[in-house]
């Protein structure tokens, strides 16, 4: 398998980025839901949010890399068996996933940096605050973060269901292409 994408196949880098982001998105959703209900004396009370923030910022870097890679090595063409509507729907869904994920990460960043504190990434370095003067910033960003997180996992779930539908019902290579194969 090549690193780069070709006309008909995803390359290794795009495949790795896709699945890494997928694991992060669902993992972060679970971690986020779990950490906000932790007992004050839980040993995870501070560690879980620190982990959530650190992973979030790494994910942001990963997503920037993914967008860059997309321009350097465009994804393969849609399958010929997909009609116009399917192609349009999947394109829309993909861009909504990208936009939603960026907005989600931005809103999370704006919660934690609302008072000018930076975010420590695994204790290695700190990402400084930038926007701090939006009125009620941490509260508004918090509401947006929670709603966007639900919207994104639901959309990502539909995206996964659509891939399974293509695999098991249409019996095409949509899902297999993201696993590194270009024919059944």
């Amino acid at each position: 398998m090549h690193w780069q994408n070709s006309r008909n196949a995803y390359g290794l880098l795009s495949i790795m980025l896709h699945w890494l982001v997928a694991v992060c998105v669902f993992g972060m959703f679970g971690l986020g839901l779990w950490m906000v209900d932790l007992d004050y004396y839980s040993s995870w009370y501070q560690a879980a949010p620190d982990l959530h923030k650190s992973i979030g910022l790494c994910l942001l870097a990963l997503m920037v890399l993914r967008l860059l890679w997309r321009t350097l090595s465009p994804p393969p063409l849609p399958l010929a068996s997909h009609d116009q509507r399917t192609q349009q729907a999947s394109k829309t869904a993909h861009w909504l996933l990208y936009a939603g994920l960026f907005a989600l990460m931005l809103s999370g960043y704006l919660i934690s940096t609302a008072d000018g504190r930076g975010i420590s990434v695994f204790g290695l370095f700190s990402v400084p605050a930038s926007l701090t003067s939006i009125p009620d910033q941490e509260d508004i960003a918090g509401v947006i973060h929670e709603w966007l997180a639900w919207a994104l996992v639901i959309l990502a779930g539909l995206h996964a269901l659509a891939a399974l539908k293509h695999h098991f019902i249409d019996r095409d290579v949509t899902l297999l292409r993201m696993l590194g194969r270009s024919e059944r």
Partner: peptide, 8 residues
């Protein structure tokens, strides 16, 4: 309380 996350 001088801490946005805590205030939230």
């Amino acid at each position: 309380t001088n801490h946005a996350e805590r205030d939230k």
